[in-house]
């Protein structure tokens, strides 16, 4: 039982890190969409969205992006440069 649990544990952490990598690649794309989103809003004073709403929206998106980046950087920033898990990310993957 024990010797089965160990590899499964390692597998899991490495799996986690890979998914964190994927997420950190996805994050700027999602951010780009949300950041660029106000560009599609109605112009002018008569539009439904007032300035304070826009401000709150943008800062909320910004804050969430920062929070997600912080979590991901904790997952990704730890390993020493050049260890096997870190260096297997070739351009292809």
């Amino acid at each position: 039982m024990d010797d089965k649990r160990l590899p499964s544990f390692l597998e899991r952490s490495s799996y986690r890190r890979r998914r964190a990598r994927d997420a950190s690649r996805l994050l700027p794309v999602v951010c780009l969409f949300l950041f660029a989103y106000p560009g599609l809003w109605e112009l002018g004073e008569t539009g439904g969205i007032v300035l304070s709403d826009a401000l709150i929206f943008l800062f909320a998106v910004w804050l969430v992006a920062i929070a997600v980046a912080a979590v991901l950087s904790r997952l990704l920033g730890e390993p020493v440069v050049g260890d096997s898990d870190f260096s297997d990310m070739k351009s292809g993957e």
Binding site: S24, P28, C31, F35, L55, L58
Partner: peptide, 19 residues
Amino acid sequence: LEFLAIYMGPTLVLVGWWW
């Protein structure tokens, strides 16, 4: 709000640092 875009551009680059 134009000035915000000037700050948000670098944010995109940094959260996408892995790229």
